[in-house]
């Protein structure tokens, strides 16, 4: 494992639950790795699988998508659509050769700061162990 490797992890967090959980973790002075670049979205249903692919393409070592628990989505079933989409996307990422630890879908409510911290720590450790994805420069012809 390369000790100097600092993974870059993109986190798409829904405004109403998971982003609020991250906020709560911060105001409660809980510690989590600083490697998460957060993109706040109104609902996890806004996260098109294309965003995940684009994140990996642009150099992310991991991607987290998190939203409200099923039944709690502020747009009724945005997160259920996300569940369907990401279930299929996971299979495709595997075929692209992206290890399954690099992508996670989680339900994290506004009160679950501890769950956010747990997920963040786990992802950080796992991805650090895997090493960098090195996908930035796939566009050029060798």
């Amino acid at each position: 494992m390369n000790q100097n490797f600092e993974p870059k992890i993109i986190a798409f967090l829904c405004n109403w639950c998971s982003y609020a959980a991250l906020d709560l973790a911060g105001t409660s002075r809980m510690k989590y790795p600083p490697n998460f670049l957060v993109v706040r979205v109104m609902c996890s249903g806004r996260v098109d699988p294309q965003f995940v692919l684009e994140a990996f393409r642009r150099g992310a070592d991991g991607v987290l998508v998190a939203g409200c628990h099923p039944g709690d989505c502020h747009y009724i079933e945005g997160n259920i659509k996300t569940l369907r989409r990401m279930t299929l996307l996971k299979r495709m990422l595997e075929e692209f050769g992206i290890e399954k630890e690099r992508f996670r879908l989680e339900w994290i409510s506004a009160a679950e700061a501890d769950k956010f911290v747990k997920v963040a720590n786990e992802m950080f450790e796992q991805i650090k162990a895997l090493g960098p994805l090195k996908l930035k420069e796939v566009n050029t012809h060798e």
């Binding site: 699988p49 294309q50 995940v52 299929l88 996307l89």
Partner: peptide, 13 residues
């Protein structure tokens, strides 16, 4: 920007 990603997204949903 990614036909497969878009198509999978629509179909799964």
């Amino acid at each position: 920007m990614d036909y497969g990603g878009k198509a999978a997204s629509y179909f799964a949903s």
